[in-house]
Each structure stands twice: as structure tokens, then as C-alpha cells.
């Protein structure tokens, strides 16, 4: 219907073969996003994603867990998240999609696409695809340790829990879950529903943050001229922000502890929203600025 309406308003022009059409009115953002996702799903990215999702649980179960006396599955899941993913979180997110975009910028591939698609839509499609990939990868990275801890380990008997180390019985330890970590407050919903609510909540939260940390270096690549700065700025801000907030006594608002709040006593749920809001505002302002000025930016021409 839209093509019919378009054709009635367009001046008569010689018809071209489909592969020579410069712009296709039927192709929309969703189509561009699907194409960009296919571009992103290469072996390096897939290998990295698989490592981020599977390695912490595998390495944790094999090498780390035997050295600890864990009290229950929640304790195990917080240990399986590990330290490598939380510490290198922005760099891992940047490595998912930003190198591909840096390569396109460097080789002026973006400039050649401007004859086929509007540059704003192209950039938006890349950012949406990168954000989706970041969301899925880091949601899975948070979900897998919880599923392993609550779904696989108890059935296979891989880990022996020792609730007696905190002078409690197994039933009493389960009762302490709602008050242990920030996100574990949802365990108040009950022992059967709580783990899955917790898994969904933490996976969704890690995915949202992963999406933002994936998108931010992509936007910075356009704003800053140096790929080194663009790729490292989120990592520097992440750790320097954590250090500065801890130094000021505001460690509950640290960027690291807001995504992986396992090193602090339980805080109100809203506290994790503060650094997230800062990051979201920064990314949104930069993205809108880049999209508005995209047709005139030298780096995109």
C-alpha cells in the first residue's frame, strides 16, 4: 500500500533492476538492524560472547568453588559471576560491536553506504544492533551462573553446601536470602518463585547495562577521533568512578557495584538506578547529538 501511494506521487522515472536501486522504500530500520546483527555475528564476536557467558561458570565450578565453604545456591551464584567479567565489563562490551564500527569508519565504508541508505538510519541500525547484542550477551552472562546454581548444581550434586559455617540450618539460610544482596530482595516472593524472579531481574539489569556499555563506545567512536580513547573511556570511567565514589563514601553509587552488587551489604533497589541514570543520560545525549549532526560530520564522509 505504501509503495502504491509513493509511486503515485513520484515523477516518472526509468525503472531500475532491483540490485541497482539506490533507496528502497520498503526497507526499514528493522531490516537494517537484522543486517547489522548478521554483520556482528562473526567468529570473533561469537567466541567472545561464548566465553563471557560460559567461562565464568565453568572456571568457577572447576577451580574456584572447591576452595570455598558456600552456604547455599545464592552464595554459589554470586561466586560464579566471578571477578573477571565485572572488572573488564566495559571492555568486553566494547569488544562486541565497536571494533567492527571502527573498521568501517577507518576504511570509509560508511561513506560509501550513504548512497544507499540515510546515514542517520544506518548509524541508528548499528547502535540498535550493538545494543541488542550487548543486552543478550550480558543478560545470558548473568543468567547462566544463576541457572547453574539453582537448576543444575542441586540436581547433579556438584557442590556441597555448608550452612553450619554461619551457625544456621539449611532452612534458616534460605530465610536469609531476601536480606543478603540488593537484588535478592525478590526472594521474599517465596522459595519456588524467588530464584527465577531473581534470575530474570539480575539478567535484565546486567543486559541493560551491557547494552549501554556496548553502545557508548560506538557513539564515542564518532565523537572522538581516536579509537583508543573511544574504546577505553568507558573502562576508565567505570573504574575511576568506582574509585571516586568509594573515596567519597558513596560506594553504593559506584558503577561497578551497581551492576554487580555482590560486594556490598543490601541497599535499597533504587540505589542502582543512580549510576545507571547518569550513564543512560550521557549515552542518550551523545547519541542524539551524533544522529543530529551525522550528515555534517567529517568522520562519516
Amino acid at each position: 500500500m505504501s509503495s502504491t501511494a509513493t509511486s503515485t506521487h513520484e515523477p516518472t522515472a526509468p525503472r531500475r533492476p532491483a540490485h541497482l536501486t539506490l533507496t528502497s522504500p520498503r526497507r526499514g530500520l528493522a531490516s537494517d538492524v537484522r543486517r547489522e546483527i548478521r554483520v556482528l555475528l562473526r567468529w570473533p564476536q561469537l567466541t567472545l560472547a561464548a566465553a563471557v557467558v560460559a567461562l565464568p561458570s565453568a572456571v568457577g565450578l572447576l577451580f574456584v568453588v572447591p576452595g570455598y565453604a558456600l552456604i547455599d545456591e545464592l552464595d554459589l551464584s554470586s561466586l560464579l559471576v566471578g571477578s573477571a567479567v565485572p572488572m573488564a565489563f566495559p571492555l568486553l562490551a566494547a569488544a562486541l560491536a565497536a571494533p567492527s564500527m571502527a573498521s568501517e569508519l577507518r576504511h570509509h565504508f560508511l561513506a560509501s553506504t550513504r548512497t544507499r541508505t540515510p546515514v542517520r538510519r544506518y548509524l541508528l541500525a548499528k547502535v540498535v544492533a550493538g545494543g541488542l547484542l550487548g543486552f543478550v550477551v550480558f543478560a545470558l552472562a548473568a543468567l547462566v551462573p544463576i541457572v547453574v546454581s539453582f537448576g543444575v548444581v542441586p540436581h547433579m550434586g556438584l557442590v556441597q553446601f555448608h550452612p553450619d559455617t554461619v551457625l544456621l540450618t539449611a532452612e534458616q539460610v534460605v530465610g536469609t536470602r531476601p536480606g543478603r544482596y540488593t537484588f535478592s530482595q525478590v526472594f521474599a516472593a517465596g522459595p519456588s518463585l524467588g530464584p527465577w524472579l531473581y534470575a530474570l531481574l539480575h539478567a535484565g539489569w546486567a543486559g541493560l547495562n551491557g547494552a549501554l556499555y556496548t553502545v557508548l563506545p560506538m557513539v564515542l567512536l564518532v565523537v572522538l577521533r581516536s579509537p583508543l580513547l573511544a574504546l577505553s573511556a568507558p573502562l576508565l570511567g567505570y573504574h575511576l568512578g568506582s574509585f571516586a565514589t568509594a573515596l567519597a563514601g558513596w560506594d553504593i553509587f559506584g558503577p561497578l557495584t551497581s551492576v554487580f552488587p555482590f560486594t556490598l551489604a543490601q541497599q535499597p533497589m533504587w540505589t542502582v538506578l543512580v549510576p545507571f541514570t547518569v550513564l543512560l543520560t550521557l549515552t542518550a545525549v551523545l547519541l542524539v547529538s551524533v544522529l543530529r549532526s551525522a550528515p555534517h560530520r567529517d568522520v562519516l564522509s
Binding site: A94, A98, S103, R225, P227, L231, S232
Partner: peptide, 18 residues
């Protein structure tokens, strides 16, 4: 302007951090 030369040394620093 080569992303590989930016990413790998950064990965080394992240590995030292961990």
C-alpha cells in the same frame, strides 16, 4: 585509527587488572 591495536593492549591491561 586501527581498532585492533587499541583493543588488544587494553585487553592486556584489563587482564592485569583482574
Amino acid at each position: 585509527d586501527t581498532s585492533r591495536t587499541s583493543l588488544w593492549p587494553l585487553a592486556v591491561l584489563a587482564a592485569f587488572l583482574v
